[in-house]
Amino acid sequence: MKIRLSHADGRPLYVQIMDEVRSGLVRGTLRPEDPLPSVRELSSSLRVNPRTVSQAYAALERDGVVLVRHGKGTFVAPGVRPDERERPRLAREVARRALADASRNGLALADLMTALREVEGGDPHRDGDGSKEGGQ
């Protein structure tokens, strides 16, 4: 799993780590039962305070996304069904960011929806299903 952080991003670092784990689940690069890097490894590779990583893991555990097995490390929870919860959740997060960006530029929701459809391929009958952000 590769986690990327941006220090220019408005989200706190621990939230970015949580979102990266969720995005890994949605993309399928992370699957149930997969081990996550240890707090030490991840904080060292991201150059962040280990507490930031612990905070992200603890919050993910509260959300039922990961599971801490004492003495063994942190794992993706066995029962996670990314399509039921993580995908819509991630889609909402991406939508929130897109809306904020639109509003910053003085655009309304309708402008954004129209443009999304046009960019997607000009088919006005295809409704956004929330996963259009998929990378290249």
């Binding site: 952080l5 220090h7 670092l13 707090v39 030490r40 904080s43 060292s44 991201l46 150059r47 962040v48 305070n49 280990p50 507490r51 930031t52």
Partner: peptide
């Protein structure tokens, strides 16, 4: 980062270049 994960440590950093250490700061 590794040092903080391995050893319980309190750190006071004085700097003009906060951006260089910001991800560690709480």
């Amino acid at each position: 980062s590794e040092h903080l994960a391995d050893s319980p440590t309190t750190v006071v950093i004085s700097t003009h270049r906060v951006y260089e250490v910001e991800p560690l700061v709480d």
